[in-house]
Design a protein around this nucleic acid. Structure first.
Length: 314
DNA sequence: AATATTACCAACCGCGTTTCA
DNA sequence: TTGAAACGCGGTTGGTAATAT
């Protein structure tokens, strides 16, 4: 696409000549005075645009065109859990990566996970309602997972407050299925508040059969006035989120599907590929993301509704 | 081979913060 | 002290390449 010019301001993709001009400017003046580039007539770009070009593409030692390594991926995942969407901050831990790189990487990853989740959800026409004994839900049960900020910068207050509303925890009959990692976060908080009471006891009844909130622990919410995570919890969340294939046993137990112990301990922290019970599949291959959903109740996904910030489906 | 879908990435925009006259 | 300009950050958009059907 050709750059367009509006009122003497050029936009769109950068040409090599423009890059050269910008580099010359930085050589002379350093990475500052971006606005002077236009005022001097060097380029028809805004200072903002110049700075962005420099930071994202022209800066020395950038890893342009280089995919994120596993180690970098792990760092991003851990830091995102710790800092939230502070991409610039996270990027400081990744030499050669820009905030834009990190942001794009994370966005793609989120889309990928959402798509996997979506793909694993049976379509309404394939509803498995009749495959199971017991009453059939007439209403959509929703669980509105609280939005958490793991930031240590006091950004969580407004969001945290929303989680004390009745519609957020437990009492609501309306349950909105959310991406798995979000399902887990309240549990971690609850455990942190009251590890004993929140322990899930296996019951003979399948909680899916009775019209109760899908996630048992949410029925008796612990008032969570302070949503600041302990470092330990943050660490757990950081590990939860990225390696969500580890969630299988946890979610399965949440759903009364076997009632394993809560996996707040190894094997939960086993390497990616483990399905959390310390086993691999029969031929020794790491469990794939798809296998995750094989262990879940078949109609778990019937009511999935992606959150507003979920990527739109194409 | 053609078309649709997905992934990736560059760039823009809005807004909050910082700097400086 | 204050207001404007500059800067920085996060969210979003749109284009293109890669892959799937």
């Amino acid at each position: 696409m050709e750059g367009r010019i509006e009122e003497g301001i050029r936009k769109g993709p950068w040409k090599a000549e423009e890059d050269e001009v910008l580099l010359n400017h930085v050589k002379k003046c350093g990475p500052r005075d971006w606005s002077s580039i236009r005022s001097k007539g060097l380029l028809q770009r805004t200072g903002k645009s110049c700075r962005l070009r420099w930071v994202n593409k022209l800066r020395p030692n950038l890893k342009n065109g280089c995919k994120f390594s596993l180690e970098e991926e792990r760092v991003v995942i851990d830091l995102q859990a710790q800092f939230g969407n502070k991409w610039a901050r996270i990027a400081t831990y990744l030499p050669g990566r820009t905030d834009n790189d990190v942001k794009n990487f994370w966005s793609s990853r989120q889309k990928r996970l959402a798509r996997i989740l979506q793909a694993s959800a049976p379509t309404p026409s394939k509803s498995h309602k009749n495959k199971r004994e017991g009453p059939v839900y007439d209403e959509v049960l929703t669980l509105e997972a609280p939005k958490f900020s793991c930031s240590s910068e006091g950004e969580s207050s407004s969001q945290a407050q929303s989680c004390s509303s009745p519609t957020c925890f437990g009492n609501s009959e309306i349950i909105k299925m959310v991406p798995l990692p979000d399902l887990v976060k309240p549990k971690l908080l609850a455990l942190e508040a009251n590890p004993v009471q929140q322990e899930l006891a296996p019951t003979e009844k399948n909680p899916w059969i009775e019209p109760q909130p899908l996630i048992p622990f949410l029925q008796n919410p612990q008032p969570q006035t302070d949503l600041e995570f302990s470092l330990e919890t943050q660490e757990l969340l950081a590990r939860f989120d990225p390696y969500f294939d580890m969630l299988t046993p946890l979610v399965a137990s949440e759903l009364g599907n076997g009632g394993e112990q809560l996996l707040m301990e190894p094997p939960f922290l086993e390497p990616v590929g483990s399905c959390g019970n310390g086993e691999r599949d029969k031929i020794g291959n790491p469990m794939t993301p798809d296998c995750v959903f094989d262990d879940l109740p078949v109609d778990m996904f019937d009511q999935i509704e992606l959150l507003p910030n979920s990527p739109e489906q194409h």
